[in-house]
């Protein structure tokens, strides 16, 4: 078995920014889902603050890592194996724009590769949100300038969600944001 740390995205500035935003957002009776938990650091940080926390990852090493942090873990693609509903969903997605030549075929790749425009996984995640989010549920999504903040907000809008920046932090060569999204009840009929 390869060294787990080489196969699992280790906590970085983006991890701690998302955790900080999630700690502010979480309420005691929330049913929380972290999608793509990686090391499990964010989900583990929320287990004391919320009644129920579940985390997913597609990476077999990540689910083991998260479980060893005491997090209830499910191995699946994004939220595919979960019916919900969840009151708070947090996701630090793979967001780096990656061309096919740049791809390295290993588990860590899943944590980084956002497809050619960096938004491939984000779009799949948002498309499935309506199925698992409770009516007044909230979503926290980590986004980088490399991914295109406005483009991500447009994807949210196209699927009937309204989004706002709730936290941000400069990094070298990029800026990180946490977007908070909820159902847009003003437009719910327009979007179906």
């Amino acid at each position: 078995m390869p060294d787990m740390d080489d196969q699992v995205y280790q906590p970085e500035a983006d991890t701690f920014l998302l955790l900080r935003a999630a700690e502010r957002e979480v309420r005691p009776h929330d049913r929380v889902l972290e999608v793509g938990t990686g090391s499990g650091r964010v989900a583990a940080g929320l287990t004391k603050a919320a009644d129920s926390v579940v985390a997913t990852d597609i990476n077999p090493y990540a689910v083991l890592a998260a479980r060893s942090c005491g997090v209830e873990t499910v191995r699946c693609d994004l939220a595919a194996g979960l019916a919900g509903p969840f009151d708070l969903i947090v996701f630090n997605p793979p967001y780096l724009p990656t061309s096919p030549e740049e791809r390295i075929d290993d588990w860590l790749e899943y944590a980084l590769d956002g497809g050619p425009d960096g938004r491939w996984v984000i779009e799949r995640f948002i498309r499935d949100l309506g199925r698992i989010l409770s009516p007044y549920g909230r979503v926290l999504l980590l986004v980088s300038t490399l991914t295109g903040l406005d483009a991500v907000r447009e994807i949210f809008a196209a699927h009937g969600f309204v989004s706002f920046i709730v936290d941000e932090e400069p990094l070298e060569g990029e800026r990180l944001y946490v977007l908070r999204a909820t159902r847009d009840f003003c437009r719910i009929n327009a979007t179906g």
């Binding site: 049913r31 579940v54 209830e72 499910v74 699946c76 693609d77 595919a80 194996g81 979960l82 019916a83 919900g84 509903p85 969840f86 199925r131």
Partner: peptide, 16 residues
């Protein structure tokens, strides 16, 4: 997995 996790799981394909 805790037993009550079953309540929020579904088939990843048909969602049943």
């Amino acid at each position: 997995m805790r037993r009550d996790l079953l309540d929020i799981l579904c088939c990843p394909v048909c969602k049943g």
